[in-house]
Design a protein around this nucleic acid. Structure first.
Lengths: 149, 149
DNA sequence: ACAGGCCATGTATAAATATTCTCTTTTCGG
DNA sequence: CCGAAAAGAGAATATTTATACATGGCCTGT
């Protein structure tokens, strides 16, 4: 599955310096994903990864980069990954498929929602923190609207 | 002359989408700097510019790492990584650039602050737990002082 | 069951980027 | 002021990345 592979890609580049798509390809092969460089080029674009900096390695997207279309990104991420939502006080728990939480988390953070203070993403669960109960409720509503348009 | 050219490069990529070094070369030539692609490749590395994201254009740098001892380390970690702080009851949410949260988290833990019970660091977010609201407020104040000396 | 669309991906190749090697210029320690 | 060493940059080339095109697998509506 593409999504699964992409989430491994994100983890991989955070764990070590990856300086070329060939290198990434070898790492993924070791993890059981055998794809070509062309596919990785596409994955990297879809993930919004960025390459450069002092060590010319791949990095997660810069926080400022995606702001224009951040809303659209969130929209797609929610539609694609979100499976369940629950609220506990001013916290909102979001569930996704395995390995998808970081992707949704990035999209949530990028959108800079006023009812969202921050998120912590595990493998398939995200803890989202709202400023207060009222805005936590608002966040749940927004997510539900996004996931069933 | 290199310095001047590099500062023009930064301005240029902030003003418009630049998707290749050749394109950048033409833009610089129009501004009176005639250099080869090889030179731009070096400039881009020295500036720490990054290429990618949805539009595969060049972008300004993402910050990097440092080290030292406990309090000084926290000081520098906060100055370098912390981008936003918010308090919710006795919790404090700290935001950093992507992948930087663990670094700041380690620095926070190492500093053994009296107003800090513990932290959980995700990718770019830290949940810091204070003993009570009063000390959470104090923690926010301390962080704000550290980040803007 | 079948035709028509999508996707996801591979293959081959074009385009972009990094690097090696070389030369020139600048800087610095006597 | 001299010579060595470092810095800056171009030309050629190696490496890396993006893309045009092709294929096969699924859906969906008929």
């Amino acid at each position: 599955m593409k999504v699964r592979r992409q989430s491994i890609i994100v983890e991989t580049i955070q764990r070590q310096r990856v300086r070329s798509q060939e290198q990434l390809r070898r790492l993924l092969r070791a993890a059981g994903f055998d794809v070509t460089q062309a596919t990785l080029s596409r994955d990297i674009r879809e993930l919004g990864l960025v390459k450069g900096g002092a060590d010319r390695a791949y990095q997660p997207p810069a926080p400022t980069a995606a702001n224009g279309n951040a809303a659209a990104l969130l929209n797609r991420a929610v539609a694609e990954y979100l499976t369940r939502v629950a609220r506990v006080q001013q916290f909102v728990i979001l569930r996704t498929g395995p390995g998808q939480a970081p992707l949704l988390g990035v999209a949530l953070d990028g959108a800079r929602l006023p009812e969202l203070v921050g998120t912590i993403a595990g493998d398939d669960t995200i803890l989202a923190v709202a400023p207060d109960v009222r805005r936590a409720r608002a966040l749940v509503k927004r997510l539900e609207r996004l996931s069933r348009p």
